[in-house]
Design a protein around this nucleic acid. Sequence first.
RNA 1: CCGCCCUUAGCUCAGACUGGUAGAGCAGCCGACUGUAGAUCGGCUUGCCCCCCGUUCAAAUCGGGGAGGGCGGACCA
Length: 333
Amino acid sequence: MDAYERITRNATEVVTESEGRELAEDPEGKRAYVGYEPSGVLHIGHMLTATKLIDLQEAGFEVTVLLADVHAYLNDKGTFEEIRETAERMKAQFLAYGLDEERTEFVYGSEFQFDREYVLDLHALELETTLSRAERAMAEIKSGDSVRVSQAVYPLMQALDIVYLDVDLAVGGMEQRKVHMLARDTLPGIGEASPTCLHTPLIADLDTGVGKMSASEGVSISMEDSTADIERKVNDAFCPPTRDPDPDDEGRERENPVLQIFEYHVFPRYDTVVVERPDEYGGDLTYTDYESLAADLDAGALHPADAKGALATYLDELIAPGRAKLRDAISDA
RNA sequence: CCGCCCUUAGCUCAGACUGGUAGAGCAGCCGACUGUAGAUCGGCUUGCCCCCCGUUCAAAUCGGGGAGGGCGGACCA
């Protein structure tokens, strides 16, 4: 696998492709970052970007994880004290998941976002940005139903973080797309370069296949789930026998979340996937790539119930080490 | 600062005028049917009716006070 392929695999888009190729020419020592609003548990959405960070490290990048405590505060997630606590918990979860502590720099936003120079640059960016643009950028991120001034400042700080953390590549889920585009448009206005951005897909809501899985509502799979939790959640998941489900009654597009998890979480880390199947249905199946599994499901050669059984097994295996580390950390404390 | 509107189930809201301690849809949960889920049937659960004070035999409903949220205030007129 060449560097560009490693950097962009499982990503929905690189903005722009030519900038991405330029980074891939000499990735050694290049810097990438993802910012996370601290939430107590690491769910498989977070794991998707975390896995991407591991890809980048393997390609030679230096990786920074921003624990965005100030952002969480601006987005009404609690007091600084409460946020600090969940941020520390989240850091522990990332380490348990498998980010290498030696090679990953964890930075709290509050460490540099109150510096005079940062704040002055922030005000300059505020001057570059209309309220409606900032609001649109926040559409996928904001909490609460009424927009606060703080939430308009939020995306501008993300733009500045890219400058102050001195990164060459900003990584995030597709919900970050508008924020990153805002950064690309406004940073030149204060004399800074437009950042290159890499966006990972969003896994659809497990129950319905609509929209994106969310930690705050609906079902999400996290590192704190037991084997039984995972079996239950996977079994309850929306999974029609097709890779391209029809829209729901309200005309909203639907994805097949079971296939998505196979594609984005299982196959990137397993060379072969064995689907155990009772003899009465034809016995075990073995796959070495996502495409053939998806094609079998689509063709009716693989029943969703069997796919779910395999998914639960592999997901559980993926989560087990982190789950064990977390358990040890808790019993140590 | 001033004015108008809103606050009832997890969500969207009805009920308020004509007081008698609450309803619908959706969601959720359970069951049937599917070798998964969904869809479709069948069943079930859910409430400090924003808070306080008052009137009353009786207040979601009437009166007063307060809180939270939304919208508005110039000019054109």
